[in-house]
Design a protein around this nucleic acid. Sequence first.
DNA 1: AATTCGCTCGCACACTGTTCGAGAATCGTC
DNA 2: GACGATTCTCGAACAGTGTGCGAGCGAATT
Lengths: 249, 249
Amino acid sequence: MPEQRFTSVWTREHKPRRAQQGLSREQIVRATVELLDAEGMEALSMRKLGARLGAGATSLYWHVANKNELLELAMDEVFGAVRIPDSESWREVTSNVAWGLRAAIMAHPWFTFVLGSLPALGPNAMNCSATLCAALARAGFQKHDIDYAGAAILSYTIGATAPEAAYTSALKSRGITMEQAQRDLAPAVEEAARAHPEIHARFQEAVESTIDPIAHRQLSFDFGLVSMLDGLSMRLPRSADMSADHLTK
Amino acid sequence: MPEQRFTSVWTREHKPRRAQQGLSREQIVRATVELLDAEGMEALSMRKLGARLGAGATSLYWHVANKNELLELAMDEVFGAVRIPDSESWREVTSNVAWGLRAAIMAHPWFTFVLGSLPALGPNAMNCSATLCAALARAGFQKHDIDYAGAAILSYTIGATAPEAAYTSALKSRGITMEQAQRDLAPAVEEAARAHPEIHARFQEAVESTIDPIAHRQLSFDFGLVSMLDGLSMRLPRSADMSADHLTK
DNA sequence: AATTCGCTCGCACACTGTTCGAGAATCGTC
DNA sequence: GACGATTCTCGAACAGTGTGCGAGCGAATT
């Protein structure tokens, strides 16, 4: 095995081409996102993408080295959809970024899939994480703790949203309603509950709940996010001065 | 579009076959995990898997409906590798599950990939979440908060570990050392840092750090996990009685 | 002995990502 | 204008994919 190098779209530089006519990288990426949104991950193929752009499939390979690069670019596009807040309060900044990222992932469920296989090194991803780090540094975290706290927030946000997005998009692409899925899943859960009465109680409560599933998930996300931020604020040298603003709910 | 149903390995029942000879589902799943561990996600094909079992590719389709079902089964196998702790302290139980799951994911990096595309509904996944829920209920959480808290812990654990596993396995499969990757990435980060001095400082600190990368990541994971658990314990009716045991570090 | 069942598997189909090399279109320079 | 260089497009082809179909096999049941 020869001495390999680590490559990514972001490690090669890219001249933005000379003329307006014909294909361009931005145009291709935009079409990629559209196609992914419309038909999902497994429907994306170079031939289909080419056809959508009125071009041959292999023409794309001039602008992009391979499909993975295309996915890296598309992923960063999603990070770019996160609106970066402007506020003094670190809690406001971090929770805005978290909710914004969540919204972006839910709007582009294939994101999860890409994130699981490719590293997120694009400028927009950097931007998100830089925003978090800046806010956390201002809040009073020191050195490595800044990274750790930022990573914790991003990790929770992605980990909480990704499976949710995967699930809802799997339903949508197969044309199944959420009620239908819950009905189909019931026997399997019933089976699992035989060994774990704890789960059965949870499931019963979920079925009988009057809260609709979407609100339910937002509550769940909020619960975890607030808990994480509370836990982080305990790590600040003086946490008393900031710890009140989440209690107003 | 006809009225579809939601299907999964776990929604069909499965007779465990009659004789010992020939293929069996367990055997196939075991071979799948082995192949995935050895050669990674994109190397898994039905033909290769069949060959490894000394069978034709299409023979597998008798025991498993399709490749996705196989991946669901393999994923649950990873959840099954998590050792379920036995303790009174909810903090001990939850953090043991979190660290166990983290270890399992790091040992089987393809897990991330599957989780991003398929729902985790298997018995072992249920078992993990039931363990968490039971501990949290014993700790004093009520009703929905039990789910929320359990989901928060799982979300953080998966969200923190998944990209890490994806990254390290991408390096390994391409035969790249971590130092080499950091060297290759440097210019891209440098470029990104131009706009965000915050990131540049973080990166400098990481490069100059004397802590080795693996320990660094464990520290980061621990930081977020402890923060999350601290935040959760604030939500307990009486948090005073439990809040001391993390201060011992 | 005949029949049914559980299981294996070769063939075939429609499709995939990507390489290669021939060609077209456009540019900078004379 | 003309000519060479550069930038870009794309058809053909290759090796490989998941999986439906239906012919066949051995063993258990009738």
